[in-house]
């Protein structure tokens, strides 16, 4: 069986390079038969695709998708910056 670190590395490489994802900000942790994905993406569809690409790299392993979808809240009050010299 492959070491956890290599499993995680392989999945992260796939998430970076696969044209379906190109997600650089997903942290993958592998622990035996379990793989956990953490991070943020821009939509529910992208969240699903991350799990799909990860799952293809980890046949037989259980992928837990803890990736969240980034919120887009309305803008807040402006920040006034000190005038610099």
């Amino acid at each position: 069986m492959k070491e956890d670190a290599y499993v995680a590395g392989q999945i992260e490489r796939a998430l970076h390079g696969d044209p379906r994802t190109h997600e650089l900000g997903i942290r993958v942790e592998a622990d035996g038969d379990d793989v956990v994905l953490r991070g943020q993406v821009a939509s529910e569809e992208r969240r699903r695709r991350v799990a799909q690409v990860a799952g293809e790299q980890a046949p037989g392993l259980t992928v837990r998708n803890e990736v969240s979808v980034t919120e887009v809240l309305p803008p807040e009050q402006p920040e006034v910056l000190e005038a610099s010299s």
Binding site: T70, E71, L73, P74, P75, E76, E79, V80, L81
Partner: peptide
Amino acid sequence: KRAYAVYCLGE
């Protein structure tokens, strides 16, 4: 987590 931030220069 917002659509944009606003920064005011000059005050």
